[in-house]
Design a protein around this nucleic acid. Structure first.
Length: 264
DNA sequence: TTGAAAGGCCGTCAGTGAGG
DNA sequence: CCTCACTGACGGCCTTTCAA
C-alpha cells in the first residue's frame, strides 16, 4: 500500500513513490474514490443493463503504462465509448475475455516528470526493499477511511476489496476483526494504561506471545504484498508484450507501404 | 489405489533499516 | 541505543498431480 500499485492494488516496488495521481474520468464513471496516498482507484461503473454496478479496481502507475483489469462482465460497459483517462500512453484495460481496450490518453501536468530515471542506485535499491511502515500508511489513510473501518485492496483479479470492521467483543483487552469475506482473526489490544500486567516470567511470555502474533501477521502481509508484486510484474509483462506486438505490426505495415511506394 | 514429487501456505527465527 | 516493521530463509503440514 505504498509506492506504485497495480490494477489489483498491487504494490510495485520498482516504481518510484507516487506523485499526485493524474487521472480523470469522463462520462459513465459515477464514482471515483481516489485514495491519494496509495494510488488505488476504485471505479464503480454502471452496468450496461439494469444489473448491479460493476466495480473496477485499478491502480495508476505514473511512470508506466497502466493496466486496468476488470471483472467478468464489464466489457459491454467499456465497449460503449466510455473513457478512462490516464496520463500514460499505451495503457490498456484487460478483461477476462482476453481483449485489450486502448485507453484514451490526455496530457496531464501532474507527476510524470517529477521522477527521473537518474536516481541513485542506493535510492533505487531502497525503493525496492523498504516500504513505509503501516503506521505511516494508516496515518495517510486516516483522512479517507472512516474510523473503525479499514478497506484493504487485495489481489484476486482486482475484484476483491476487503472490508475490515472492528467490534469490541467485550472480551478484556481484545477485539475481533471481521473480514468481509467471512474470515476473522483475533487482535489483542493493549490495556488503556498502555502496559500489560507486570510480573516476571509471565510478562516475558506474554511479550513473546505478542511478538509472535505480530510477526505472524506481518509475515502474512508480507506474503500478500509479494504475491501482488509478482502479479504486478506479470501484468506489466502483458502490457509490454502487447505494446511490442503493436509496434511490430506497425513496423510491418510501414515497411509494406514503403515497398509499395518504392515500386511505383 | 498408492506412494513420491511438487507446489503452496503457514509460523518462526534472524537480520536489517527507520524512527524516536 | 532501543523498538518496531519488514522480509528472506527454513522447516513443517497439507493438497494436488502423476506414474506405477
Amino acid at each position: 500500500m505504498d509506492g506504485m500499485v497495480d490494477e489489483n492494488g498491487t504494490v510495485d516496488p520498482l516504481a518510484p513513490s507516487p506523485p499526485p495521481v493524474a487521472i480523470s474520468s469522463v462520462g459513465v464513471v459515477t464514482q471515483q474514490q481516489l485514495v491519494a496516498s496509495t494510488n488505488i482507484v476504485h471505479l464503480t461503473l454502471p452496468a450496461s443493463n439494469n444489473h448491479a454496478q460493476t466495480q473496477v479496481q485499478s491502480v495508476i502507475q505514473p511512470n508506466q503504462q497502466s493496466v486496468i483489469q476488470t471483472a467478468a462482465n464489464i466489457q459491454p460497459v467499456l465497449g460503449k465509448g466510455n473513457v478512462i483517462l490516464v496520463s500514460k500512453p499505451n495503457s490498456v484495460i484487460q478483461t477476462p475475455q482476453g481483449s485489450l481496450h486502448a485507453l484514451q490518453v490526455v496530457e496531464t501536468t501532474a507527476s510524470d516528470d517529477s521522477y527521473s530515471d537518474d536516481e541513485s542506485p542506493k535510492k533505487r535499491r531502497d525503493l525496492l526493499t523498504r516500504r513505509p511502515s503501516y503506521r505511516k500508511i494508516l496515518n495517510d489513510l486516516g483522512g479517507v477511511i472512516p474510523a473503525g473501518a479499514i478497506q484493504i485492496s487485495s489481489g484476486e483479479g482486482g475484484q476483491s476489496i476487503h472490508t475490515l470492521s472492528m467490534t469490541n467483543s467485550g472480551t478484556a483487552g481484545a477485539a475481533i476483526v471481521q473480514y468481509a469475506q467471512g474470515q476473522e482473526f483475533f487482535v489483542p489490544v493493549m490495556a488503556q494504561s498502555g502496559n500489560i500486567t507486570s510480573g516476571g516470567g509471565e510478562d516475558q511470555a506474554r511479550k513473546r506471545e505478542m511478538r509472535l502474533l505480530k510477526n505472524r501477521e506481518a509475515a502474512r502481509e508480507c506474503r500478500r504484498k509479494k504475491k501482488e508484486y509478482i502479479k504486478c510484474l506479470e501484468n506489466r509483462v502483458a502490457v509490454l508484450e502487447n505494446q511490442n506486438k503493436a509496434l511490430i505490426d506497425e513496423l510491418k505495415s510501414l515497411k509494406e507501404l514503403y515497398c509499395k511506394q518504392k515500386t511505383e
